[in-house]
């Protein structure tokens, strides 16, 4: 069976993961709850709007990053989920900036910010909103915050296409320059949001979760 056939079938086992890539952490935000590695970190039951949830989560996580408040909601969500994912890790000590890549996907692209910007055009267009009218800006915000300088990509699909993303990221991780990757789903539109980001690393001691399609679907379902 070829490597691609293995990926297609989602049958990669611990023994035959090419390049030894492993899921070393994951972070999920949905329905007012924040999860990290299968543990519920915090749940905001009262926040009815995404704006309120994001600010509550920022404060709950004890972050101090004033630029957060200037970001659009997609960037706020991405920053919070990535901060939750990276908390307690020594990623920046273990890898060079250009060895850490970021690959996201969602369904609504930057439509949430696009609509808010469009509303301002009726009066005077807002420069601060305009700069967030691309989905990959969230990747830039995360890379600026953490100093990452590796490969990045943002895909738009109707739903979380685990198979495509797995194959893309697997290929990316086979390049020698990539030793770690943050990848996953980052969807936000109005008061609807859901995010699941995974941290991938090569050749780590914890080989519990090999980077396989099966494991992606098991951890995020």
């Amino acid at each position: 069976m070829t490597h691609s056939a293995n990926i297609e079938s989602g049958s990669l086992s611990r023994e035959n993961v090419p390049g030894g890539v492993y899921i070393t952490g994951y972070s999920i935000f949905r329905n007012g709850a924040i999860e990290k590695d299968d543990h519920l970190v915090w749940k905001e039951a009262s926040a009815q709007h995404t704006d309120d949830f994001l600010v509550s989560a920022y404060r709950q996580m004890g972050l101090s990053y004033p630029k957060f408040f200037k970001m659009d909601n997609l960037s706020k969500l991405g920053l919070l989920v990535s901060e939750n994912l990276l908390s307690g890790t020594d990623l920046k000590e273990r890898y060079k900036p250009d060895e850490i890549s970021v690959v996201f996907a969602n369904a609504s692209s930057s439509l949430d910010a696009d609509q808010k910007y469009f509303d301002t055009i009726k009066d005077i267009a807002s420069p601060a909103l305009f700069v967030y009218t691309l989905p990959n800006i969230v990747i830039g915000e995360i890379c600026i915050k953490n100093g990452f300088k590796g490969e990045n990509a943002f895909f738009v699909f109707d739903k979380f296409e685990a198979k495509f993303l797995h194959q893309y990221v697997q290929t990316l991780m086979q390049q020698n320059t990539n030793k770690a990757c943050i990848f996953g789903w980052l969807e936000l539109m109005g008061d609807s949001y859901e995010a699941a980001l995974f941290l991938l690393e090569k050749d780590v001691a914890d080989k519990t979760n090999p980077f396989t399609l099966e494991n992606i679907n098991k951890l995020y379902s």
């Binding site: 200037k70 009066d123 005077i124 807002s126 420069p127 601060a128 700069v131």
Partner: peptide, 13 residues
Amino acid sequence: SIDALELIVLLQQ
């Protein structure tokens, strides 16, 4: 620099 543009908008609005 983006904030500077927003301040210009503020003066106008």
